[in-house]
Design a protein around this nucleic acid. Structure first.
Lengths: 201, 201
DNA sequence: ACCTGAACACCGTTCAAGT
DNA sequence: ACCTGAACACCGTTCAAGT
């Protein structure tokens, strides 16, 4: 394990333990037994180190989505599985999640990071595409529909992680809300032959 | 204008000009001609000052939504108007937007801030409710549907503001994506008597 | 009640110097 | 090629002291 890899691993651990502000170059260096400016020999600055952490996680997510997409099964359960993986990642690693999907300074770095993010996005879009071929989701532009679903997913996770979506207030969990979204979108894609009403009993 | 009000105004101006990291207590104090720790006589700490900035903006948004809701007009155009106001706020004041809707440390403060945020949310939910009475949106639980629409809106704005949703890649703008969402949700609420297809001409 | 100046314990970053 | 220690210019926060 190279020093650079150890720095990335230590930064990720500090991120999980104490949030972004806990990832100081001094703490990262101390965690692997080097001085507080040894990281500068491997990364341009603190932002580049955090970007390296993000790239690793984007690749993990891409692999997870690829495994789901190529697995056997119906498209809609596979989508639900992918959504659950993503929601769980956001809940279990909120600081990492924010780094990947909600930190403006990190995204501004572009380069390898942006490409890794796009690979994750396109792998996810493949799962959406399968749902469209079976008419479980509407036959609009795949990239537009993926953007919409992904943005909803992100919004739910970000609002929940920031404490702005409290279940006590009767608001739904990300999982429930995504279930609602796919159900409603599915209804618009495949209008029921027998008109069902949700209000009466 | 009290010193406290001047501090809040100066903090908001610094936020717009240079982002959250530009809002240092030294810069805020200097902007209104007091020392760098004068703010401590009016706010508990830096976070409380930022929370005060957020509260002012939540109230502005609440008022804007209330004006739209009580205006004359059809529910669906009123919703579109509210969405545009929100999207424009996010685009024109990205740092303020993040403070209100995406900063975990600020939301953790609770109290008056949380109440101001809830008032904004409930005002928005009233506009959604009108669209549900006219069957322009599905007749599911109002709070669940509002959560879903609001989370989508937030996700789109946050991803765009962070540079993660690039139009060059064929991804839609928040405005276009929200149009798609309301159209699709509308179709599920009010299945067309004459089945229209979007693919043919 | 409101404000100031000095001080403390942190930061990221740079740089000369070492191996 | 990789690392260190000192130094610099910042931070937020605390505190004794002033009016």
């Amino acid at each position: 394990m190279s020093t650079a890899e150890k720095l990335v691993a230590a930064a990720a651990a500090l991120l999980d333990a104490g949030g972004e502000s806990a990832v100081t170059l001094r703490a990262v260096g101390h965690a692997i037994g080097v001085s507080h400016n040894a990281p500068y020999k491997h990364f341009k600055d603190r932002g580049a180190l955090l970007a390296a952490v993000a790239i690793v996680d984007f690749e993990t997510l891409t692999d997870a989505f690829a495994a789901i997409r190529t697995s056997v099964g119906e498209p809609l359960p596979k989508l639900k599985h992918a959504l659950d993986v993503f929601i769980r990642y956001g809940r279990d690693y909120p600081a990492r999640y924010r780094l990947l999907f909600s930190d403006p300074d990190i995204a501004a770095q572009g380069g390898h990071l942006e490409q890794a993010a796009l690979r994750t996005f396109f792998e996810f879009s493949g799962i959406i595409a399968e749902c469209q071929t079976t008419r479980d989701l509407p036959a609009t532009s795949n990239v537009k529909l993926t953007s919409l679903v992904f943005a909803t997913l992100h919004g739910l996770i970000d609002l929940e992680s920031g404490g702005r979506m409290r279940h006590e207030k009767g608001l739904s969990s990300p999982s429930e809300s995504m279930q609602l979204l796919t159900t409603l979108l599915g209804q618009s894609a495949k209008p029921p032959l027998i008109k069902k009403t949700t209000s009466g009993r």
